[in-house]
């Protein structure tokens, strides 16, 4: 809620947060990127316009999303944040009458090029949704391995190891290791969401899109998801849409602020280091929004 926003002074110093703490069994985050020029930007959106039929939901967005960082997209509801997010794994085009203009480059590859199949793209750009949506007829194990069992690419030989690894990385392994055969829906809401994150991790995506992943969860479950995001940072490029500005300030490296124009089309107001956006935004609109003066 916009009214609960605390002033920027209280925000944690996100940019200075040390690299994620190594946990057992995992290699610590790498030292400086070997090829910085090619690596620092993961996704480039260029003059993006997204439509539903004749309605323009997102207008002229150009944005660079850094690799292996967390980028938060905030803004009032209805400003096209989710629509924008869904352009990155081409889920937008599944809606009736959906259309896009502009370009999105992922590691320099135009993902809307004719040679790129949306189905293939979605294996490398995972997504976590607003409400936990495990497959109710599948067990926990089957949920995690669902993407891998679709086939395509190399057939995994060590499914068990991958399931364990993904559940561990989703901080769920200890809770479920003794009943992997139970249905995914037998878990609590927060556990279900971590299961969905494990499911997304299993296909080894490079980008994880999160569409308000904690909005259906209680504060404690929310905290665990946030901790999890921080641990995944460094290995994955994470883009999170959130209506919770405190959450954005807690977890993200970069923040993009979207607003809605007269024509109800969402547009990018500004983007920058999270600390900057929340303490010293360039735009008055951003200032108003984060200080709760927006509409």
């Amino acid at each position: 809620m916009a009214t609960e926003i605390r002033p920027g002074a209280d925000l944690p110093a996100v940019p200075t947060r040390p690299t994620i703490a190594p946990t057992s069994g995992r290699v610590p985050a790498a030292a400086p990127d070997p090829a910085p020029a090619a690596r620092t930007t993961k996704i480039e959106a260029r003059d993006l316009n997204l439509y539903y039929g004749s309605f323009r939901a997102v207008r002229d967005v150009t944005m660079d999303i850094p690799a292996n960082k967390i980028t938060a997209i905030i803004g009032p509801s209805g400003c096209g944040k989710s629509t924008f997010l869904r352009a990155f794994n081409r889920m937008h085009e599944l809606a009736q009458g959906a259309r896009m203009e502009g370009r999105i480059l992922l590691d320099g590859v135009d993902i809307y090029d004719r040679s790129v199949d949306a189905v293939d793209l979605r294996r490398l750009v995972g997504m976590v949704f607003q409400r936990p949506n495990p497959f109710p007829t599948m067990s926990i194990y089957e949920n995690v391995s669902a993407g891998l069992r679709l086939g395509g690419g190399h057939k995994p030989t060590n499914l068990d190891a991958i399931v364990e690894d993904c559940l561990t990385r989703a901080a769920l392994w200890d809770e479920v290791k003794d009943h992997l055969g139970d249905p995914g829906t037998s878990l609590s809401g927060g556990q279900q969401q971590r299961l969905c994150i494990a499911r997304a991790l299993a296909v080894d995506p490079e980008v994880i899109l999160m569409d308000e992943p904690a909005s259906a969860l209680d504060p404690i479950a929310t905290l665990r998801i946030e901790e999890l995001m921080l641990e995944l940072r460094g290995s994955y490029t994470i883009v999170i849409v959130t209506h919770n500005m405190q959450q954005a300030s807690r977890v993200s490296d970069q923040t993009a602020f979207f607003s809605m124009g007269e024509d109800r089309a969402g547009y990018l107001v500004e983007m920058g280091q999270t600390a900057t956006i929340f303490t010293n935004p360039r735009e008055q609109l951003t200032e108003d929004y984060i200080s709760g003066r927006f509409g």
């Binding site: 794994n89 889920m91 599944l94 189905v119 293939d120 793209l121 979605r122 294996r123 490398l124 995972g126 997504m127 949704f129 409400r131 949506n133 495990p134 497959f135 669902a146 993407g147 679709l150 395509g152 969905c196 499911r199 997304a200 296909v203």
Partner: peptide, 20 residues
């Protein structure tokens, strides 16, 4: 949400229909 979950994993329309 069930369809989206399957699409999000890189499933084809047919796979979404029969697996989700």
């Amino acid at each position: 949400s069930q369809r989206e979950a399957m699409f999000g994993l890189g499933a084809t329309r047919w796979e979404v229909a029969v697996k989700a």
